Structure formats: structure tokens, C-alpha cells
Simulated scan of single mutants.
Amino acid sequence: MKRLILVESGVYAASIIGLSYIWYDSDNRQSFHFYNDNKQWLQIDKMGHAYTAYHVSSLNAKLFQNAGLSKEKAYLWAGISSSTMMLTIEVFDGLSPDYGASWGDALANSIGAFLPYQELLCGKAYIHPKYSFSPSPFSELRPNVLGENYSEQWLKDYNGQTYWLSTNLNIFSKNNIFPDFLAFSLGYGGDRMVYGDPDENEMNGYDSYRQYYLSLDIDFSSFNTDKKWLKVLYYALNLIKIPLPTLEYNKFGWKFHPIYF
């Protein structure tokens, strides 16, 4: 356990130091301040915060259990440690003239960090947050904000991001009539967001709108194996939504995608 704490502390410290010098301008700091960004990007950025915090917490819970902590303590400390890790970013935002600490981000972080508690309360994880991305044409209009290339766009271009909540289909069946790996997934995204603020976006001629998705998915956590490399592979695959036929609803009506990612 001590070794795990030392390793995680070292990685965390190195990440924070690197982030403070690379992402933020250390020579242009301001006094700590808040900024209300809850209207921006149709809240898709908040989905990203919750998604990241969930998977950091879920991984930490597994590492803590492997290090010898009881399941109850592992999930408790995973939630606390993951919330703390994400909160540090809000502190940096609060000191930056280009950003500001956001209570909406902090709330999303906490929800994501403690969502793995479902496994402790219910005996298994019924809800799996997932992510998918397809490049959008809007990044070309503001590459400095939405990303200059694919390696930046998957993180910055909210037009191409979709966040999902997947659950095993047998949750709706008393007799487990569906295959264990088959899942049902609800997705959320947005389009035509060149500017984060919806009023500014509209003033510049872009009418942003929300997108809701319904699709099937694959739950890789249902596959049992004793091989460590396969466990790692299944865990990684369960981070993303598998491309499958999808039904979309937006302000224009319904749309069917033979394959959507």
C-alpha cells in the first residue's frame, strides 16, 4: 500500500507540475477567482469532467483493493483522492486570467468520482460512462480553441464528442434473456458550437443544438478471464462506446445512423 501511495503521489506531483508550466502561464497569474461557465458548450465539457473523474476513481478503487484495502475503504478513498486530483485543476483555473474556478466543474468531478460507489452499493457496476469522438468541420473555424489536429480535437472539439451511459440489457429482464455482453446505451452531444457561450455563438451566426442518442453497446466487463493482459484490454475497451447502429434525436427530429461513433 505504501508503495502504491508513493508511486501515485509521484505521478500526480509530476503531472501537476508539468501542467502548471505547460498549460498555464506561470508568469501571468492572478488572484484566485471564480468563473461561471455553466452555460458554455451545452454542458458537454461537464460530461467530460464527470467521465474523467469516474474512470480515475474506478481505477484507483481497483488499485487500492489490490494493495490490500477493504472494498469499502478502497471506494471511499478512491472517491476522495480522485476528487482531490481533479480539484487541483480548478485551483489552477482559478489563478489563470484566461479561465476561472468553476463550481459546475467541481460538482461534475465529484459526481464522477463517487459514481463507482454503485459497485459497492449494488454489488456490480450497472452504469458505465463511455466516450466516442468523430472529427467535426467546426474545428477548422477556430483551431486555436477547438484543436489544430486530431490529437488536440478529440479533447477540445466538443462538437465531435459524445458521452454515453451504458448498462447491461439484462437489467430490464428478470430471466436474463439477453447475452451478458449486450448493453443499452444513452448518449449526449452537441453540434454547431464554434463559441462556448450560446449567445456569442448565435451572434456569430451559429445555432448550436443538443443531440440525444440511443444505441446498443458491448459491456466488456462481463467477460471473465484470468489473463492479466486481457483484463487490461477489456478495461480499456470499456472506456469507449463501440460503433453500432444508433438512433439520434435533435431539434430537427429523428435520424438513424447505420454506424455511429
Rank of each mutant, 00 (worst) to 15 (best):
V7W: 09
E8K: 07
V11T: 11
V11A: 14
A13S: 14
A14M: 14
L19A: 15
Y21Q: 14
I22H: 14
W23C: 04
N28Y: 08
Q30G: 02
S31L: 13
S31N: 13
S31Y: 06
D37C: 06
D37R: 04
K39W: 11
K39R: 15
Q40P: 00
W41C: 05
L42Q: 10
K46G: 08
Y54M: 06
V56L: 14
L63P: 01
Q65V: 06
L69I: 04
W77P: 01
I80L: 15
S81P: 01
S83L: 11
T84Y: 08
T84F: 12
T88I: 15
T88G: 00
T88K: 03
S96P: 01
P97L: 07
P97W: 10
Y99D: 05
Y99F: 13
A108C: 03
S110A: 13
I111T: 07
A113N: 09
F114N: 01
Q118I: 06
L120R: 09
G123K: 07
I127E: 03
H128K: 12
H128A: 00
K130A: 06
Y131L: 12
S134Y: 01
S136V: 02
P137M: 10
S139H: 13
E140R: 14
N144S: 11
L146Y: 05
G147F: 10
Y150W: 13
S151N: 11
W154E: 01
W154V: 13
L155Q: 08
L155H: 03
L155D: 00
G160E: 02
T162P: 06
Y163G: 10
Y163M: 07
L165A: 14
S166F: 01
F172G: 09
F178Q: 00
P179I: 08
D180W: 05
A183W: 02
S185V: 02
L186P: 00
G190I: 04
R192Y: 04
D197C: 10
Y206N: 06
Y209Q: 07
Q211D: 10
S215M: 03
I218V: 15
S221N: 13
S222F: 02
N224G: 00
N224C: 00
D226Q: 10
K231F: 00
K231G: 04
L233M: 12
Y235K: 11
A236L: 14
A236R: 03
A236Q: 12
L239I: 05
L239R: 07
I240W: 05
P245A: 11
L247M: 14
K251E: 14
G253C: 08
G253V: 10
P258E: 11
Y260K: 12
